[in-house]
Design a protein around this nucleic acid. Structure first.
Lengths: 222, 222
DNA sequence: GACGGTCTTCATGCATGCAACCTAAGCTGG
DNA sequence: CCAGCTTAGGTTGCATGCATGAAGACCGTC
């Protein structure tokens, strides 16, 4: 699947998004247009356009005439987003299972081999990367680009990178997660859409529960 | 559920979106910033911001240095979007079935009564409106605002209004659709999340097949 | 008549300037 | 000492001007 990325101005949006997701600015911090403009050596106009995008993605909050602030999803929103994640990834697994032999399948097989090894060696960093690849490969393998787009948006809203790191650190979770991944791939290889969807949803649900346990219940700015 | 709508500049985005969805400009037509600016009595800057939003929603295509054009989804994209619709509405029905007695349930009951009457009297216009309300009520009743947001975005991409009109005109479809609506509500009232999801997905799938049959396979601008 | 090159026209992309407005700090009076 | 008001600083919101670039028309030539 081709993932077009216009280099033109999308670069700026990407860079600002990375800035926000990367945690360079703590949640609640002010993101002045002028600063970003100077930082990226452009004028305020394209910065404004990018920030408006990020607002619609839910990553920042623009308080009119006041400023743009880094937004942190509430616990409730995270739960809501994980429910969506479960549904979308379930759909992706189902669609992938319907397809014939695709390049994504060999990627998944290789991924699980590497994951097994990462579990044995205790390389949590590599494991986190492989988990990431596993999920994205399934979504890309669904051969549904609109699903891919919505999933991308969803992941951006989840500020996923910050969450998954903590989740992976749980000792027992890694082994369980790997087993679930194997189960998902097995269903896909058996061309069982329903089973694949079910396995995927179970996996996402279990994974989200872990993430929510780790996630402290913090609220801010009434 | 509260649906906040900032009146500030969202009004402009909404109005331009309505212009595009309403079919005032045929697909492929040029949407000059200057024209829109004059039409809505603002400068080009806010118009540009709104158009960039619509581009990310998939409603328009901005060809750099050339112009902004109304985009028509391809047949393949419509299929992809309907698959997403099936998944999201299935999730919504499932979540609604998990909830206790909510105001949305009485809305749905009333909706089906009115629908039955519209079927008898052959009032297709009222029926189309009721179908619209039925689906949105379920999504709102899911009590998942992120789902609501993604669904809204999905529906915008589907340019739904143009599609559903043609679908409803099929004679046999209306009766079947009503039966399916009743089945969905029954599952929800029985607090059967799995059954509700299943019934909803079946309904959306059947409805999408009708829409795709009616939809001519047209492609444009290679 | 057809083809190639140039040129005009037009729309976007971005920088900049100014006004509106919100926030907070400081000041004054009680 | 505190409360209310005033004022100054800062940030966004929008209008405007200019440069860039693309697409089509037009003209000259073969």
């Amino acid at each position: 699947m081709v993932v077009p990325e216009a280099v033109e101005q999308e670069g700026l949006l990407e860079r600002i998004r990375r800035l926000v997701l990367g945690g360079e600015f703590p949640p609640g911090a002010l993101l002045p247009e002028a600063y970003l403009a100077q930082e990226f050596d452009v004028s305020r106009t394209p910065v404004r356009e990018a920030l408006k995008q990020l607002q619609h993605e839910g990553l920042v909050e623009i308080r009119p005439k006041v400023g743009t602030f880094v937004r942190e999803p509430t616990r409730r929103e995270i739960i809501e987003l994980f429910q969506l994640k479960e549904s979308l990834e379930g759909l992706a697994a189902s669609l992938l299972a319907r397809r014939g032999e695709t390049p994504e399948l060999s990627v998944l097989r290789r991924n699980l081999e590497d994951s097994d090894e990462a579990v044995l060696t205790g390389d949590t960093e590599a494991y986190a990367r492989l988990v990431h690849e596993f999920h994205w490969t399934i979504v890309r393998g669904s051969d549904n680009y609109k699903l891919y787009e919505h999933y991308e948006r969803l992941m951006n809203q989840l500020a996923y990178q910050r969450l998954v790191i903590r989740t992976v650190e749980h000792p027992g979770r890694i082994a369980a997660s790997t087993r679930e991944h194997h189960a998902v791939l097995e269903m896909i290889e058996h061309k069982d859409p329903f089973g694949a969807e079910s396995a995927m949803r179970n996996h996402v649900y279990a994974s989200s529960r872990e993430a929510l346990i780790t996630e402290p219940a913090r609220e801010r700015r009434k």
